[in-house]
Design a protein around this nucleic acid. Structure first.
Lengths: 221, 221
DNA sequence: CGCTGAGTTCAGCCTGTTTTCAGGTTTGTG
DNA sequence: CACAAACCTGAAAACAGGCTGAACTCAGCG
């Protein structure tokens, strides 16, 4: 179980890391948004502990970007500011829990445990809709119980998003946003057309419909 | 569904307008109180997004004038100042919601949706009237529980407007206005006839009635 | 270093939507 | 009833947007 600890106060970070590791978690420490962003791209964490007051920007922005990108791992916010506004903001942006400094390590541990437990109950590895089965772990699809076909990363993310929000029209811009939220320069909308085309080659033409001028829908009815 | 966006930062206004239009709203931008006042006299908006820091005065004054005049359409205030005082002031003067910059577009969209829903008294994304169900997310209709039929952008916007204001006669000019916001070259009134015709083909003849010389009504009884 | 596969861009073709238009039909009025 | 105004409608032009094959980059790998 790997956690990402985003905290720029070295002293606090070290002490927290130690106590977390004592409790059986592996901890990667990061001290800036920049590092956090880059490390999140390659590593696979079970939970993020996020300090709001970071040298290069607000942790809230980072969190909101992650949420937009469809990243749904638990985030626990840690902050010195305990005003009502911050709290509400953090939770609205998509934090799962909120702890204000100073706090007791035991409390932090308890909350982390609770978050991980809650999450475990929710995880489903396979999503089937309209005969299309999507497997998270292997990043592959199967049509009507047929053989599994593995997808490339982008194909998979696009299909996963569409399947998690079926029967809704999603504009190309929104989809690009979902696929690339964490990157700086936005990709061309045409990319979506290309990937939709590839998915259709796999799933058959009719499952993802085009709404000309509006976007795309994964239809179930 | 037409919104008035009162924001003098061109860059922000443009980006907001784009994302709002992506979400199916028509947006009229205005950059000063003067323009807003004049445009409000003639146009019919479902909601106003109001920036407080405008070149020719405070948006709060405008809002308070509107409220005094009995205007009760939803107003969402957008502002850089996030002091508690401003917030209270805005809400006391009669704003329905308050968002401080910087904010995330998704949050703005969510709040707009909530305000419009609250106003219309709708709880869900689906509006059913007289056997006609209109689904926002999939931009489609179903008649008497039958199969869903997707609409083109213009068909959808027209039907949505009629269904949100049923049992009222809407002139062709007004409908054109709703469909095309303030775009310079107004479309011919005949366009409305064409689209009404297409909708009738889908919904059946009798649901949208013609009031010769006056306009069209979506009738519920 | 070449091979491979993923990601991306692009141009040209293709298709659906919007808009216009002309001719037919309905409706209200004197 | 005759007439004009208003409306309806099918067809087609104009337009915008989507699709697709091909080419290019780039990273990882033998």
């Amino acid at each position: 179980m790997k956690l990402l600890l985003l905290e720029d106060d070295d002293l606090l970070a070290e002490s927290l890391a130690e106590s977390l590791e004592d409790n059986g978690y592996r901890v990667d420490p990061a001290t800036s948004l920049r590092v956090a962003r880059s490390v999140m791209r390659t590593e696979d964490y079970a939970l993020v502990i996020l300090d709001l007051g970071l040298p290069d920007g607000s942790g809230l922005d980072l969190l909101s970007q992650w949420r937009k990108a469809g990243l749904d791992l638990p985030v626990l916010i840690l902050t010195a500011r305990d005003t009502w506004e911050d709290k509400v903001n953090g939770l609205e942006v998509g934090a799962d829990d909120y702890l204000t400094k100073p706090f007791h390590e035991a409390e932090l541990l308890a909350r982390i445990k609770a978050l991980l437990r809650r999450r475990a109950g929710h995880v489903s590895q396979e999503l089937t809709l309209n005969g299309v089965s999507l497997n998270e772990a292997s990043q592959s699809v199967s049509i009507d119980g047929g053989p599994w076909h593995s997808l490339t990363g982008t194909e998979f993310r696009l299909l996963r998003f569409l399947m998690h929000h079926p029967d809704r029209v999603h504009s190309k811009e929104k989809l690009i946003d979902q696929l690339y939220a964490l990157e700086q320069d936005a990709a061309a909308p045409n990319l979506v057309e290309v990937y939709i085309g590839r998915l259709r080659r796999r799933l058959g033409k009719s499952i993802i419909q085009t709404r000309r001028g509006q976007g795309y829908v994964f239809v179930t009815h």
